[in-house]
Simulated assay, not measured.
Amino acid sequence: MNLIREHAMKKRLRWSSLLAVIGLAACVTINIYFPAAAAEKAADKIIEDVWEQDATTTPAAPTSPAEQEELSSLPGFAWSRVLDFLITPVVAAEPNLDISSLAIKRITVSMERRYRELKPYFQSGAIGLTHDGLVAMRKAQEVPLRDRTQVNQLLATENNDRNALYGEIARANGHPEWEAQLRETFARRWIQKAPSGWWYQNAQGQWAQKR
């Protein structure tokens, strides 16, 4: 009788362990999965529109090995690559992220118009791209004193739009919890697609010039 009872207990333990593993796997798929490739594609489309880049004829300046090493140290870079190996083929076949909502369109149009005013300051090095997907004043001396208040206002409005953009994309796709990962994705892609000569922040917040 004891042997029968012991065998039954072992069998129940095996089933419990199996169910726990299955449950854990399900949690990983549901809670951790973030469509990194789709997010990069969506980011590239928006960045090209805002910066008026032609993806077919005006590719972004190539990233040097040193710059690539700096970009790989930005938050979320390594984790997004790990997820590419963890997700199943079925999950990987999910459609692209939806960036067609009216709210997203309004934000991107606003950013497109503002970019024409910000572009000269990107080119002069007065402003640059931050490591958290925003923009910031890098060298105020490059901006005429009479224009500094206006440039600071442009930067503040631009950052408001960028913050809103990341949140709106997450909400439009039914996953508000993706906002931080979308921000990390955009932060990398803004820098990677920036023209040569522009300035950006590395993971330590130090300024570097795109080669």
Rank of each mutant, 00 (worst) to 15 (best):
A194H: 07
S110M: 03
S80C: 06
I87K: 11
I191D: 04
L74M: 14
K105L: 09
W190V: 01
W190Y: 14
L155T: 04
Q153K: 13
F77H: 11
E168F: 03
D132E: 12
G174N: 01
H175G: 06
R188L: 06
Y121A: 06
P144C: 00
L83Y: 00
I99K: 08
E168V: 00
E94D: 05
L71K: 00
Q201G: 05
E117D: 12
P176E: 03
N173Q: 07
E117P: 05
Q181W: 13
V135Y: 06
A172H: 08
D161P: 01
I104S: 10
A156V: 10
R188F: 00
I169L: 06
N96S: 13
T157A: 15
L182T: 04
Y200L: 08
E177Y: 09
L86T: 00
S72G: 11
D98K: 08
A103S: 14
I107E: 06
L118R: 10
E184T: 10
R106G: 14
R162V: 11
A172Q: 07
Q153M: 13
R188V: 09
K105V: 07
L129S: 08
S73C: 10
Q153H: 12
N160M: 12
T185S: 15
L182C: 04
R148P: 03
A156M: 13
N152K: 13
V135F: 07
L145W: 11
R146P: 00
T185D: 07
S80W: 00
I107K: 01
Q123M: 04
T149N: 11
F122H: 05
R81T: 04
L154I: 13
V151L: 14
Q141P: 01
N173Y: 04
Q150L: 15
Q192L: 07
D84Q: 14
R183M: 03
T130K: 09
I169W: 02
G197N: 04
T88W: 07
R106Q: 12
L129M: 04
N159L: 02
R171S: 14
V82W: 03
I169K: 00
V90E: 12
D84E: 10
G125S: 03
G167H: 08
L118A: 01
P75C: 05
E117W: 12
G128F: 09
L155S: 03
A180D: 11
I191A: 11
R189D: 12
R116H: 12
L129W: 09
L154R: 05
R81H: 08
G76K: 06
E184L: 07
A92H: 02
A78Y: 01
S124C: 05
S73W: 13
F186N: 06
V90L: 14
S101W: 11
I191E: 05
I99V: 15
G167F: 01
Y115M: 08
I169H: 02
E158N: 15
Q68E: 09
R183L: 03
R148S: 09
S100W: 02
T157C: 05
W178D: 11
N163C: 02
D84W: 00
T185R: 08
Q141R: 12
A172C: 10
T149A: 15
Q68M: 12
L86W: 01
Q141S: 15
A140Y: 05
L165E: 03
D132F: 07
T88K: 04
L165A: 01
L145K: 14
E94C: 06
A172K: 00
